[in-house]
Design a protein around this nucleic acid. Structure first.
Length: 808
DNA sequence: GGTTTGAAACTTTTT
DNA sequence: GTTTCAAACC
């Protein structure tokens, strides 16, 4: 309790405010988590509130975990009875207990984005919808928004009357929802909406939880959507002790249905609400705060507040303009290496932020080359990887036989010789008889026209039934072992023997580890509880903090985090603010949300902030010329250390260097470098000059290397490098300037007269490190070199591109 | 009928 | 550079 003495007056007021609604407007870095945990401790210690009568809701598991830890540390006895959880897991727990009251089985499956898409494809197919005109994604996004607003298919249809497009969408929504229900499945949005429905339809359940949760706290309240608002209001309906914490300036999830009005009009909804403002920032230097304040001041309709700090001054904010995204990545990598070698910071202090996930690749590449350890948050979720998803689908199909999406996914994985035609017959049979796909499988022999395929499908059905039987008696881990054994899933990968297959096996091992950890830490671990846990993990949750690595993530993922050193990359009009926001339906609102995102980014930095802008960026094979982001202009000039870097050829770059040389044809900043491609002009908006050869560099047979430090890291282990699919056969498909193969255009590496290494020599490669030359083949224009690398394994590459150096 | 291969389209942010 | 769709191939 002596912790309270360390709070400032406003924090103390918020932490010790008694009953009734309470709105805490907490600016960035103002210590809101501290206030929340202190409040929980105070409620229990001073107000004699029972720990199990307290509910604290967050958005991510990570935030929940942190709060849990701090509550445990501060509250002591009884702390674990405090319910700290995310919106989705809270609803999950409630629904696992009462979903049967609203027509679901308790073992319902939770569908992620991939599952939703799959299901929507089936829906569109069954309704004969031309997805060339109406995209699945569009349907899903409208349905998602509807659910966020608590509109069920019936209400939606009513509101759609008169608008033919909306009526059509309404029909799709109805069918989608019907199939979800048939599959005994819910999507993410259902979790919230169905819980609200449960409360509305079953007053006894609602009053049970109202009585259970007498004190409710909601973190990041500005990100709640309408459904979440209703959920919270219902829960707080009896006792009225609702404490919400948020910052309207950090509302960045409107695309996900977040309704900023929830926080802006809290005082209207709860007229007796007490409002406390936390404006003292404990995180950043005065310059960084000043920059953040100046940017956000351009937004209208905010709750007035201005952050201030007593923190000492720090280094100036840098803004660096470079020519290309490649130069940007190079600058960031070099700057990090410099700072770290000077001892001003450690790798673990640094975060590189960007607007879109697509920007991460080039940064990743540069960091890898510079030997800087990094971890990427986001991109491909571990649980979304093919091999993981396959095995999880087995578990899902076992747990919930009605999960048609899961059964469809695995019926021919690994290959069992069951093809599309057979599956179509099973589907038709299931539809006619109104049974699930699994049941149709069980009746394989009765299916008309199936022929001898019934032997294969029957075998598969038998396997699934055997596994289901076993599931009741063994642990999840043992069950997975059996699946892997029976299906020879890993065996198959082992036979493939490629680097990619090895990676997949590693990921499967990692999945097994996760299951073991889960079963060890969860007393009542069941297959269903494990699957729920797994489907509700977010990318950000994998961040462990002890890694000693530079972190790369989107600005969205960075919310709620702080770092001593922050790089905000891609500060360009069209990227950030994104063109989607600029040219969307409501440009004003779009820009304001982007600006809030910028505010979030700036306020992540404690000590040193570096902003970077590239003039040119490759975008879907075209180069776009961008102006510097307006947000840079919104920062007072005197706060910025402006620098402009000239493009220059960094000798070490594999591939990009060459593309760079060719791409310069149009001339940059009025100067003419090397050859002139002739067409295209700099400065007139979008440059669409000759084909830049994006993606086709390294057109030799480079293989699809898999890099990254350990595939257990989220995002690492992603493969890049040219070659692989899309460019099979070793011949460059991509066009160079004027449609000719890039290799033939000027500036591309030429075949060397001779090579200064031969078979058996030790060589070094800029990315793969050291290795031994195994084979040299003269293929006309160039030599093809095969090298067995110590770390990266056997690689084939073209000598002119590989830039191998003989080791002395 | 099933599998493999090649070409085309597509990239905001996510629980 | 990745994922999806159609055609060729077995």
């Amino acid at each position: 309790m002596n912790e309270l003495q360390q709070l400032n007056p406003q924090q103390l007021e918020a932490a010790t405010y008694g009953d009734g609604p309470l709105l805490i407007l907490a600016g960035a870095g103002s210590g809101k988590t501290r206030v929340l945990t202190n409040r929980i401790a105070w409620l229990i210690g001073e107000k004699q509130v029972k720990p199990w009568n307290i509910l604290a809701i967050t958005f991510t598991n990570k935030a929940a975990g942190e709060m849990r830890e701090r509550v445990d540390a501060q509250v002591g006895f009884g702390a674990d009875s405090v319910w700290v959880a995310t919106f989705h897991s809270t609803c999950g727990r409630i629904l696992r207990r009462f979903a049967d009251r609203i027509g679901y089985q308790l073992n319902f499956t939770i569908y992620d984005g991939d599952d939703q898409k799959q299901l929507m494809r089936d829906v569109c197919k069954s309704m004969n919808i031309n997805t060339g005109v109406y995209k699945e994604k569009m349907f899903l996004s409208v349905i998602s928004s509807a659910k966020d607003e608590l509109l069920d298919p019936v209400t939606f249809a009513a509101s759609a009357a008169g608008d033919p497009d909306m009526v059509r969408i309404g029909e799709v929504y109805k069918e989608y929802q019907r199939q979800l229900r048939n599959n005994n499945a819910m999507d993410f949005d259902d979790m919230i909406m169905q819980t609200v429905r449960l409360f509305q339809q079953c007053p006894d359940v609602l009053s049970y939880y109202q009585d259970r949760f007498r004190y409710i706290m909601v973190d990041e309240y500005q990100d709640t959507n309408t459904a979440q608002f209703h959920l919270v209001s219902l829960l707080a309906g009896a006792h009225g002790n609702l404490c919400v914490v948020g910052d309207d300036d950090q509302s960045i999830y409107s695309f996900r249905g977040a309704n900023i009005q929830n926080i802006l009009s809290f005082e209207q909804v709860y007229p007796s609400a007490k409002v406390v403002r936390l404006e003292q920032n404990y995180r950043s230097t005065p310059d960084i705060l000043e920059a953040a304040n100046s940017v956000i001041a351009h937004n209208r309709g905010r709750k007035q507040k201005r952050l201030w700090t007593e923190n000492p001054a720090g280094p100036r904010i840098s803004h660096v303009t470079v020519y290309s995204a490649y130069d940007e990545a190079d600058f960031v990598a070099r700057d990090i290496a410099k700072e770290v070698s000077m001892g001003t910071c450690r790798n673990a202090d640094i975060a590189i932020l960007y607007r879109t996930n697509a920007q991460s690749r080039i940064l990743e590449e540069k960091l890898l080359m510079s030997g800087i350890p990094y971890q990427i948050i986001g991109g491909v979720n571990f649980y979304a990887r093919k091999e993981i998803k396959d095995l999880l689908s087995y578990l899902r199909a076992i747990d919930n036989p009605r999960d048609d999406v899961a059964v469809h996914r695995i019926i021919n994985v690994p290959k069992r010789g069951i093809g599309a035609a057979t599956i179509a017959k099973l589907d038709a049979y299931a539809a006619v008889n109104d049974i699930s796909f699994s049941e149709a499988l069980d009746r394989s022999r009765d299916i008309p026209g199936i022929g001898k395929s019934a032997i294969k499908t029957g075998k598969f059905a038998a396997l699934m039934n055997k596994l289901r039987k076993e599931a009741g008696t063994v642990t999840v881990r043992e069950l997975l072992d059996t699946i892997i054994e029976e299906t020879e899933y890993v065996e198959e990968l082992r036979r493939e023997g490629t680097e990619e297959a090895k990676d997949r096996i590693q990921n499967i091992d990692e999945l097994i580890n996760k299951i073991v950890t889960y079963e060890e830490n969860t007393p009542e671990a069941t297959l269903a509880s494990f699957l729920q846990e797994v489907s509700l993990v977010a990318d950000i949750d994998s961040l462990d903090g002890q890694a000693g690595k530079v972190l790369l993530m989107t600005l969205h993922s960075a919310k709620g985090l702080e770092f001593p050193v922050v790089y905000m990359t891609g500060m360009e009009e069209g990227l950030f603010p994104s063109s989607m926001a600029l040219f969307g339906e409501r440009p004003d609102e779009g820009i304001e949300e982007e600006r809030r995102l910028c505010y979030v980014g700036i306020t992540r930095a404690r000590r040193k902030l570096t902003l970077t802008s590239a003039r040119m960026r490759m975008n879907r094979g075209e180069r776009d010329i961008h102006k510097v982001s307006r947000f840079i202009d919104e920062i007072p000039k005197e706060l910025l250390d402006e620098r402009e870097l000239e493009p220059d050829s960094y000798g070490s770059a594999f591939g990009s260097r060459q593309g760079y040389a060719a791409g310069r044809g149009g001339g940059f900043a009025g100067r003419n470098y090397g050859r002139s491609a002739g067409d295209g002009e700099y400065g007139s908006g979008s440059y669409r000059g000759g084909n830049y050869g994006g993606g086709s560099y390294g057109s030799g047979n480079f293989g699809s290397g898999n890099y990254g430090a350990g595939s257990s890291e989220s995002g690492a282990g992603r493969s890049f490098g040219a070659g692989g699919s899309g460019n099979r056969g070793g011949k460059p498909k991509g066009n160079g300037l004027f449609g000719k193969p890039l290799q033939l255009s000027k500036g591309a590496p030429q075949k060397a007269d001779h090579l200064d290494y031969e078979v058996g020599d030790r060589v070094t490669h800029v990315k793969f490190g050291e290795g031994t030359v195994k084979e040299l083949v003269d293929v006309g224009r160039d030599y093809q070199v095969s090298v067995e690398f110590d770390k990266a394994g056997l690689r084939k590459m073209m000598a002119a591109f590989a830039k191998l150096e003989k080791k002395k």
